[in-house]
Amino acid sequence: MKFRIYRYNPETDAQPYMQDYELHIEAGDMMLLDAILMLKEQDDSLSLRKSCREGVCGSDAMNINGRNGLACITPLSSLKQPIELRPLPGLPVIRDLIVDMTQFFKQYHSIKPYLVNNDPPPETERLQSPEERKELDGLYECILCACCTTSCPSFWWNPDKFVGPAGLLQAYRFLADSRDQATAERLDNLEDPYRLFRCHTIMNCVDVCPKGLNPTEAIGKIKDMMVKRTV
């Protein structure tokens, strides 16, 4: 099984390069991450992030044969050889497959990803009806792996100004929450040619999301809310 992996160690390499690897294994029902860990046994300088190895933590997002995804839930047998692995596009590379996610999380924090409710906390929980809770389905499942945001050309061009699909999905997650009271502020925060309206609905985000979520739809709903409060 043949691999081509992006290598870059800023302390020793002047430039990034692609390194070829080979593994003598059958794909079977193995996941890509299993194979990468075997490669790491061959060459322990190969660096990547990983943690839960079952698609929950979102640490091992990378560009796999030109498409962003999580190595731990990508079946080896589904990939064409040589399997080309690169770091997520559009973010600074720290080393090999590890990228600096600062910009991504800055955008995430900019949409205030927490419930804003000024009422005194009740004795128990702030209750929701089953219908209200249902509004959050398809939104709360995001694991912030950055597959979507780093596949978005608008984020590549304006990572400092465009919130990106992951951030906007989360923005809508709180706009849609019946317990949240900051709807107007949240919409004000996004009413901007860069922060929200850089999205031109090309749907790369939907295409790559390893959790099957739909940031484009969430962005459309934010725009709907803005239209409703304006007209």
């Binding site: 400092d160 100004k161 004000d188 925060n189 009413e191 901007d192 040619p193 860069y194 922060r195 929200l196 309206f197 725009k223 803005m226 239209v227 304006t230």
Partner: peptide, 15 residues
């Protein structure tokens, strides 16, 4: 500094 918050965009998008 990175400045955003021009508070327009919806009208153009709708138009």
């Amino acid at each position: 500094r990175i400045v955003t918050g021009a508070h327009y965009g919806l009208r153009d998008w709708l138009a």
